[in-house]
């Protein structure tokens, strides 16, 4: 696998998390996906993720988009 852009890689990573969380009850999955990204993704990574989400979220699994409002938007450094 070679991800050309940082966005492609982050989309892939977010979707990987989503696939795990999809096997949980929906509300729990949404909450845990958001907290997982909040806990482990450095602000730079979340900023790139929001660039994708704000541009319509193409390529992201629905669960990521549903969790988006619970993901912390990084304050600009």
């Amino acid at each position: 696998m070679s991800h050309e852009s940082p966005h492609a890689k982050l989309i892939y990573m977010a979707n990987q998390i989503a696939k795990f969380m999809e096997s949980k009850p929906h509300a729990e999955g949404v909450a845990l996906l958001a907290s997982h990204i909040n806990d482990f993704w450095e602000p730079r990574m979340r900023r790139h993720l929001f660039e994708v989400i704000d541009a319509g979220g193409e390529g992201l699994r629905p669960l990521v988009l549903q969790a988006a409002e619970k993901i912390k938007r990084p304050v600009s450094a």
């Binding site: 940082p6 890689k9 806990d39 482990f40 993704w41 450095e42 602000p43 730079r44 990574m45 990084p74």
Partner: peptide
């Protein structure tokens, strides 16, 4: 209070220039 970069993320950020 924010998590930092993991090794693969450091390398990605380095390639990206930050």
């Amino acid at each position: 209070d924010e998590p930092g970069l993991r090794i693969p993320n450091m390398l990605d950020a380095a390639v990206e220039g930050t």
